[in-house]
Design a protein around this nucleic acid. Sequence first.
RNA 1: UCCUCGGUAGCUCAACGGUGGAGCGAGCGGCUGUUAACCGCUAGGUUGUUGGUUCGAAUCCAACCCGGGGAGCCA
Length: 462
Amino acid sequence: MNQKSIKALLGMKADQQDIVVKGWVRTKRESKTFSFLEINDGSCLSNLQVIFDQNIPEYANLTVKLTTGTSVKVEGRLVSSQGGGQSVELQATLIAIYGLADPETYPLQKKRHSFEFLRDIAHLRPRTNTISAVLRVRNALSMAIHHFFQERGFVYIHTPIITSSDCEGSGEMFQVTTLPMDKVPLNAGKVDYTRDFFGKRTGLTVSGQLEGEICALALGDIYTFGPTFRAEHSNTARHLAEFWMVEPEMAFCDIAQNMDVAEAFLKYIFAYVLEHCQEDMAFFNHWVDKTVIRTLEHISQEKFERITYTEAVKKLAAAKIEFEFPVAWGKDLQSEHEKYLTEQVYKKPVMITDYPKTSKAFYMKMNADDKTVRALDVLVPRLGEIIGGSERENDYEQLLNRIKSLNLNPADYHWYLDLRRYGSVPHAGFGLGFERLVQFVTGMQNIRDVIPFPRTHGSAAF
RNA sequence: UCCUCGGUAGCUCAACGGUGGAGCGAGCGGCUGUUAACCGCUAGGUUGUUGGUUCGAAUCCAACCCGGGGAGCCA
C-alpha cells in the first residue's frame, strides 16, 4: 500500500491505485447509499474529499461513527472528482477507525469558533484551520530565519536559559530557585542565596544579548534564537510571558550596518513565507486580514523609512491630528505616535534611531551630542515595535560611567566591561520578537493565537 | 498594574424588574455527486461565584473570579 500525505495526494494525478491516507475527519455529508468525508492530516490546509458507498465493509456503521474529530485510515483509489470543489478525491475501498470522537462532547464543531473559545481548548485547537496554518507558517518562519543567517555566515549560538545576569531595563525576571518556599533560609533577615542551587540568585533569561556579545567578539557574526521570559504584568494582544526571540549580534558593525541587516532580514523572511506558504497565506488573506499578502509583497520591495527620533518628534509635532499624549523631545513615543508614523505618514516599516539616552538601556552607544544613543527601533504598521536594537557602547570609560550614573553595580558587569577592556570593537545587534513576526505575517490580532501554548500573566494552562 | 466592555443552551448571541429565546452545533427521520449541503422533528439552562435591595432579579447594587478591547512596559 502507498501511504501518502494529503499534501502529496492533492498534487497527484487521478487513477492511482492502493492509496492509504491517515488523518482526522473534519466533516461528513451522508446519504442513504453513499457519503462524503473530508479528511485532514495537517500536512496542508486543504482537506481530502473521500467518497464511500454501501459496497465497502460496515457502511451503515461507519456513517454513524465517522463524526467530526474521528481518526481514520482510508484505503482506496484516487479518482478525478465529479464535484466542483476539488480536482481529485479518494474513492474508498476500506475505512478503519483509530479513535472515535463523541459528537455530544467533542468541542470542535463543523463551524467557526471564536479564538477566545479555542484558547480554552488549546489541546484541540491545532486541529482547526487557522491554528494549524499558524503553526505551519511559524515553522516556515523559523526556517527562513536560520536560512537568512546561515547564508551570511552567522554562527547560531545557544545562550543560557538560566542566568544570574539581570539585563537591566529588559523587564522583570522569573526567579529560579530550589530553596523551600515554606522555609526559606535567612541570613540577617534576608534570603540566603548562598544556599540556593547555584549559590546565588538566578532567574530565567530576559535576553541573550549580553552573552551574544561575548560570542560576537570572538566569532564575528552570531545569532541566537530561543525562548525568553518576562514576568511583566502585561495584558495586551502583543505580550507574552514566554516568547521566542531572535538576536543577531555583529562585530565590526555600526548602527547603519545594523539597520541594513534588519531591513534585509525582514524582507528575506517576508519573501520566503510568500513563496513557501502560499496556501496558508491565501487562507489568512481571505479569512483573517484581507491586506496581509499585499502588505508583505509591498514591504519586501519598498525601502524602509529611516528617521531619527528627533525627526520623528518634528513629524508628530506637525501632525494635524490631536494626540492623547502630547509630543515633546525627551518623552517616549506612545503607541498612538508609532501608529501615526507607520500607518498615516509612511505606510510602511519605519526605522527610528538616536533616541534620548534617558529612555534607553545603559549599554547603547552614546552619540557625540551626549544626549542621544544609537538605539534602533523598527516599527511596523498595526503592531508597532517588532525589532529593538542598538550599536553597543564599546568604550570602556563611557560604559563604566553609564553604569555608575544609573546606580548599577559595576562588579555585576565585570565580564561585560572586560569585553571593552580587551580588544574592544564596534558592534551592534537587535532583537526580533518571533511571535510578533508571526502576528505581522499572518495578520492574527492576538499574540496568544500565534504560539501553540501561550503563557501570560495569570495563565499557563496546557 | 490602570481604564473600559462583557460572562445566559455545546458555540455565537437576544431577552434589560414580572413564566429565559434564536441561529448554528448535536440526536432522530427524510432527500440529493455532496462540499458553509438541504427539509422536518427532538433534546439541551440553579443565567460566572457569593452576598445584598425587592412581593418578585438573567436584569438593580457590592465584592470576588474569568475573558475581550485599550493604556503602560517592551520584543
